[in-house]
């Protein structure tokens, strides 16, 4: 009993030393989808590291869209820095400027760092997260690596702690390991809900797997809206409902009827 209490006290003392618990003071970046932001307590914290898992290589685009969406919602004069390995470029394709620009990311200012391996990627990450002028820093890592451990993630968290940047660690086909990340997500693509049966807006299934300091988790289907640059919820997919525009018209008409009454 006494032992348990002492362990508990030690845990608390450790937690107070842990850099990531003191986050949130630098501001939050909301996703734009109300219920999700509520669960997050306002949004994703700056000055902290968040992990986004793409379970399969095929999920990379969806996970990148999630990271890119968060980056696009930060200030436009703070560029995005993206770290990828040369191998990832060959495997999964090159980041495409026009695609990024359509999402609302300033492709002109984006900095892309192509590294050889995980260790180099982590080095660039630490250096970049310390920089006071950057917005989001995306670190894309493929597969499992023994270098991606708690120590490495602590180092990243410490580097970003006092800055306004946000670290987004994008893990593709990797195993979750203990980390100092504030939130952990699993993102995969989801069927879009275009009313005309065409491929629609980027739609993803985002699962909040872990949140430091708060127990609330969740699983949402999110849709990235290019025009408003915000995440939202897709209209119900499956059975095709009347086009949105039409519905709005009908609602307006109904309102009009009510007035003329």
């Amino acid at each position: 009993m006494d032992k348990a209490r002492r362990v508990g006290a030690l845990r608390q003392a450790l937690a107070s030393l842990d850099p990531v618990v003191r986050t949130g003071q630098n501001g939050l970046i909301s996703l734009g989808a109300g219920p999700v932001d509520t669960v997050l307590g306002g949004g994703l914290a700056r000055g902290a590291v968040h992990e986004i898992f793409a379970e399969r290589p095929a999920d990379l685009a969806a996970a990148s869209c999630f990271a890119g969406g968060v980056a696009a919602r930060m200030e436009k004069d703070r560029p995005l820095l993206w770290v990828r390995s040369r191998k990832a470029q060959e495997e999964a394709g090159f980041l495409y400027g026009h695609g990024l620009a359509e999402m609302g990311i300033a492709a002109r200012d984006m900095i892309l760092v192509v590294v050889e391996d995980v260790v180099e990627g982590l080095r660039v990450g630490v250096e970049a997260l310390r920089c006071a002028g950057l917005g989001a820093v995306v670190l894309e890592f493929w597969g499992h690596s023994r270098h991606l451990d708690l120590t490495a993630s602590r180092r990243l968290a410490l580097a970003v702690e006092n800055g306004a940047a946000m670290g987004l660690v994008l893990r593709v086909a990797g195993e979750p390991a203990p980390s100092a990340a504030v939130t952990r997500w699993a993102v995969a693509p989801a069927p879009s809900s275009d009313p005309y049966g065409l491929p629609g807006r980027p739609t993803l299934s985002a699962r909040l797997l872990r949140q430091r300091g708060a127990g609330a988790l969740g699983h949402w289907h999110l849709e990235w809206n290019h025009a408003t640059q915000a995440f939202g919820f897709p209209a119900l997919s499956g059975a095709v409902v009347a086009p949105v525009v039409d519905r709005q018209n009908r609602a307006q008409r109904r309102a009009g009827w009510a007035r003329t009454g």
Partner: peptide, 21 residues
């Protein structure tokens, strides 16, 4: 230097995020 403009944000994406070449 850029010799063209980047695409603007639209309703749905016209170009992919990752491109194979």
């Amino acid at each position: 230097r850029d010799s063209a403009e980047w695409l603007g944000t639209g309703e749905v994406p016209r170009r992919p995020l990752f491109l194979f070449y």
